[in-house]
Write a protein that binds this DNA or RNA. Structure first.
Lengths: 339, 339
DNA sequence: CAATTCTGCTTCATCGATTGAGCAAGCGAG
DNA sequence: CTCGCTTGCTCAATCGATGAAGCAGAATTG
């Protein structure tokens, strides 16, 4: 096993030799505590200049191995195919860097096995803290982290072992459903139950949104038709198939829908355009998620936008304060359009 | 500075003590080359079982420090706010994992300084290879990598120092422009020059797309109006402002546009809907990029979808074959709708 | 039966950075 | 001139994993 032949990397020992000093002086200078270590400003400057000239780059592996904290912060995220998770990741990286942490993010494609594997990999890389975003089994991840003495936080979907930051799904869904119900009533002159499409029936967010959906119906004095709650998964094909087979079964679909994510909306829209179920007028839609192009699709769509900046502020507040109690923080989402 | 108090992590030394053997035996067993190191199957099994029971996790920092290859592969990416980069990252992670590599991805928000900082950070983490996606200065990154003896590959935007994989922007733009020109001619009965909006005039992709745009005009015998080539940057606001001030200047805008990315399209669409420039009929649009909801916006939009799977196959082919010559591989994009 | 080979381990140096402990020179006080 | 303090460094152990080299004891060979 040979070293990379091309260019052996410059180490603090090389710099020490060049500067005619010791490696420990170099180390002290390069990580800024040379005052504490009583290195003269002269030597400090010489070493700094040399490091610059030689293009020295710290070997994090060696540094992390020696220190107690790695300053690496991990995040796992289900998908990169929508604005919500995309902005979570961007915001996360920005805020991590502001705190002098190195963010590493990985996408698990909603695959439970990959989620666990990814969490283990992050622990191997000695992350100080792991954020599980939209995880299918947050508690499993929390357990793995806790066994390694690593802090964990849940985002988007809550768990019961560590703190969680999620949207106020009930309130968001309540308001969204209200608007779609009233849009339908305004246009079609009658109160009628809506269709709910998308999401996993077992996940907390979906069940809270269904609860909001029901509450808005109750408020309006409209009975929810249980056949019309399709928690079929998030994927576009699943939403499309669910709605297709429902249409085959019941004949006529409602003039209003609650769609649980832009991803599911993709399938719903596809079906609406392919089938000739709504030849005259588009149904009124409410989408629990936000996308700029969906907003342009027409006036018949209302959206709820999750407040990503506030959610991540809450996440970092937990991290900064070292809170570990498994409380759930709910951030109100933003209802985009004015009905 | 104290160690994490809670749970000190299990190391190979702990396992060695528990198994009554040496750390090197444990190491040999756990990384699978115990046959080569002549460890008995019996001991191997005992160690494996113990590791399982104790929830042992390899310390990658220590392991990487000792080995010559880190098996970490880095990628920098400009943004997570569109399907193109999102699918690049997902595909990259999947393919990296298939090869037993650990992917680390970071987003630089089109900030040149952050790009360099991110590249340096990745080198500190001893990546074996760095993929610079849509970098503003790929050659700078390649130089930094080369100084550290690390391989680099450019994706989406080409450089001159290391291999690059990009879309065939000229061909894609040519075909897209042809379609929009012919859509306009069909509807409005006259050949007229289109508007080009979005992208940086200095980047290779944009200039190739402008070249394709011009070639299609030439082919159709239509003169390109130089005032109508707005390479104003990618951001929605920039596209919106550019088009707004152009409208103020020239009065009437063309009935067809070539929009250079979905991100710029966001601004263009916003302007179209806010201004009353096209009260009767929407202009025909061609977008060099793909998004499912844009596709639903109407028949007046044509899209070119970059072939992400083939692009990443090409990237990994370069990596697997250790090619280093700075050739540019152009992957034909897919023209989505049939005009 | 001695010489050699094979088996199944252990020992120890090493990767690069960090940090507590320690050492020598200089300087001021007594 | 000596004692003690400060200044400005160096030394060496350490983090955890890896693998070349080496070393007993058993098995095989001539």
């Amino acid at each position: 096993m040979k070293r990379r032949p091309q260019t052996k990397r410059t180490t603090i020992y090389d710099l020490a030799e060049l500067a005619g000093t010791s490696a420990s002086a170099v180390s002290a200078v390069l990580n800024g505590n040379w005052k504490k270590r009583r290195i003269s400003a002269q030597l400090a400057e010489r070493i700094t200049r040399l490091a610059e000239e030689q293009g020295y780059a710290l070997n994090m592996q060696a540094s992390v191995l020696r220190r107690d904290r790695s300053k690496i912060i991990g995040m796992i995220v289900p998908k990169y195919d929508n604005r919500y998770f995309g902005s979570i990741v961007e915001q996360f990286e920005t805020m991590a860097r502001e705190r002098g942490l190195f963010p590493i993010v990985t996408c698990t494609r909603r695959d439970p096995a990959l989620e666990i594997e990814a969490a283990r990999a992050m622990l191997s890389y000695q992350v100080d803290c792991l954020i599980a975003t939209g995880a299918t089994d947050p508690d499993r991840i929390a357990d793995i982290c806790s066994a390694a003495g690593v802090r964990a936080v849940n985002l988007d979907l809550p768990g019961s072992r560590v703190p969680s930051v999620i949207s106020d799904n009930f309130a968001g869904a309540l308001e969204l459903t209200r608007r779609v119900l009233s849009n339908c009533e305004r246009e079609f002159g009658e109160k009628a139950p809506l269709l709910f499409v998308g999401g996993r029936g077992t996940d907390h967010n979906t069940s809270e949104r269904v609860r909001g959906f029901r509450a808005a119906h109750a408020e309006a004095g409209v009975a929810v038709d249980e056949l019309l709650v399709l928690t079929c998964g998030y994927a576009p094909e699943k939403a499309e198939n669910a709605i297709k087979s429902l249409a085959a079964k019941v004949g006529t679909l409602p003039r209003g829908m609650f769609v649980n994510s832009t991803i599911s909306l993709e399938g719903v829209m596809r079906w609406i355009r392919r089938s000739s179920h709504y030849p005259d007028r588009m149904p009124h839609l409410g989408c629990f998620d936000w996308d700029p192009f969906v907003a342009m699709l027409g006036d018949h769509i209302e959206m709820v936008r999750q407040d990503v900046p506030r959610m991540l502020e809450a996440v970092f507040e937990i991290i900064d304060s070292s809170a570990t109690d498994p409380k759930v923080i709910e951030i109100p989402p933003i209802v985009e359009k004015i009905g």
